[in-house]
Each structure stands twice: as structure tokens, then as C-alpha cells.
Simulated assay, not measured.
Amino acid sequence: MRALQAAAPWGLDALQVIEAPDPTPGRGEVLVRMRAVSLNYRDLLMVGGVYGRGSGTADKITPFSDGCGVVEAVGPGVTRVAPGDRVSTLFFQNWISGPPTLEKLSSALGFPIPGAGRELAVFREDGVSKVPEFLTDQQVATLPCAALTAWRALFEDARLQPGDTVVLQGTGGVSIFGLQFAHAAGYRTIITSSSDAKLERAKALGADHLVNYRQTPEWGRAVRELTGGVGADFIMEVGGAGTMQQSLRAVRIGGHIAIIGVVSGGGEGIQPAVLIGNSARMQGVSVGSRDMFEAMCRAIALHDIRPVVDRTYPWTEAKAALEAMRGGEHFGKIVLEF
């Protein structure tokens, strides 16, 4: 089989297609022929050698956590799936249920466990899940990280009610899933972007209010105005540097800020006085469990939610796809096809 591999000294130029032996499933394992994988910002950092618990010290990695494939064979004792089943990978192979622990969070695909960027892959049977039949392979591949992160932030960690106001930053994968989920749940949605064209696409997905942060750098004030001075009940914080202070200004008293990512950099220092003054909560979000994933898939099927795939590339052109992600021009998700 062929597989993607990145190795020291890292960087996009270090990503290559290699030949590798076909794997064989052991007890409790499944062999999956991959059909599609989707990109996350984490993958860009990982290939660059700057992400994860000790990832910079790994000699080589098989990248990508998020994939869709078909079970080709199963090892002894497997009962969850059978040959011919279409499945999604799970970001954390050992996080089945309950709260996160170090052991659960140390089982991520891509690193330390070889990822989905290969034609054939062996996973634990607990590390894959069946998926809604109406979704395409490309759409399924977007679910394990971006969709589940948005789901957990909105429905597992926050305490929201229909009619509450949520702010989605930007139009990347997590934020667009957040918009789709929030709209389905009856939340009032405010989305930010530097592109009016992207904001119009977000409006078509159900966004109630649009804020161009290039035209309105103090978008926290705009959120306050849109909420009658009260502030937002929930903010999906994906930027880090340049956005955190605006999130703190935009959140209501007792509101919830979900810390998703640091696309704009490591972020500014948090002002404790601001958090104390408005009793806001900040919650770091690192994807979620299998139980959360399966609950999310039930909701996707119930509400007929279609993940937004902005563009696709052949899987052997992963470097070009990651370069496109780094450019930030996409709306929703970028997917590699096998």
C-alpha cells in the first residue's frame, strides 16, 4: 500500500508518499480501506513538527486524524463492525465515554498513533464508528475533529437554551459546524469574517447577524450592540492573538467562552479582572469522546445537516491542500480523496 509520511526536519516539503507493507488486523482490530480524509489546522502544525505531546521529538508520523473508509477485514473478537461497513475514524482512539483523562487524550490519531493518511489502516474496533448513510465519504471525513469539537463546545460544556446568542469566529471547519448546529438548536447566531462573500455564504446557512471584523475591528462592541448591551451567551474562540480581548468584551455576565484554537497565534494574556467582573467561564475544548460522536451523528441525521466541503484534492496532493489551508481562503473543510 501507499501512505503519507512526514519526518524531521519537518515542514510541508518533508511530506511524501511512501510504499509500506499492507497491515493485518489483530484481535479486536479492524482493517479499513480509506476513502477520504479531511484537514485540520492541527495537521498543518503537526507536519511542521510543532504540535502535540512530544510530537517534535518523533522521527516520523503518518498524518491526519479524520477519515472515512470501508471495513475490509476484522480480527478475532470484533463485534462493533463487520466487513463492508462504512466507518469514520475517531480522533481519540481510547476516549469512549466520560470526562477526559491524560490516557484518553494521549490516544490521538496522527500522533502518537499513526493516522488515516494511508490507503489501508488498522484501528481498534473502539476507534471507529458507523456513520449516517446519507452523507458522502467526503462529508463523513469532516466529522471526527471539527464537527465533534463544535458539538462538544455547544452541547456538552456550555449550558445554553434555545434563543441564546452564540458567536462563531471565522468560517473555518469548526465555526461552520458550530453555525449549523447552533441554527438547528434554535440559537441566535452571530458570525465574524474578513470577507463579505464568506459572510453571505454563512447567511445562507442560517447566520442571523454578520460582522466583518476587518471593517469593524472592535467586533466585541458590535456584538454588544446586537444584543442590546447584554453580550453573547456563548463565544467560539478560535483565533487566540487578536481575538481573545474582543471575546472578553463581547461575552455577557455569566457567559461561556469555548477555547478552540489559536489560528492567529498564541494569544494575549487573559485579564483576570475582566473574567471576575463578568463571572464568565472559559473552557478549553479538545475534541470529544465516542459517545459524544455518536450522539452528534444522530442529531446530524435527524436535522439532515450536510457538512460543508469547500474543495477536494487527490490524497497524493496533500501538500497542496495544506498550503491552501495555510492560505485561509477556504469556507468549511478541505478534503483529500483516495
Rank of each mutant, 00 (worst) to 15 (best):
L31M: 14
R33T: 09
V335I: 12
V140Y: 12
P25N: 10
D157I: 01
G77N: 07
Y313P: 03
D137V: 02
G11Y: 06
G332R: 01
R290F: 04
I253F: 13
L44W: 03
D157A: 14
F123C: 06
C145Q: 02
Q161F: 04
V223L: 04
E329Y: 09
K104C: 08
T192L: 10
G110V: 06
P162Q: 08
N278S: 12
S107R: 12
P307L: 03
V71R: 05
P25W: 10
V262G: 08
G56K: 03
L105C: 07
V166G: 13
E337C: 15
V32A: 07
G49N: 09
E317A: 13
A202L: 00
M236W: 01
E103A: 13
E125V: 11
A202M: 05
M34L: 13
V263L: 15
S279H: 10
S279L: 13
A324P: 01
E237N: 12
P21R: 09
A82S: 15
G127A: 15
E125P: 05
R118E: 00
P76C: 05
F177A: 05
A280T: 13
C68D: 12
R42V: 04
V87H: 01
P217M: 10
V174D: 05
R118K: 11
G254R: 06
A320L: 07
G229L: 01
T79H: 07
L336A: 07
L248K: 02
I270R: 02
R224L: 13
A14E: 11
A295R: 15
G127V: 10
R290K: 14
I176H: 01
E19M: 08
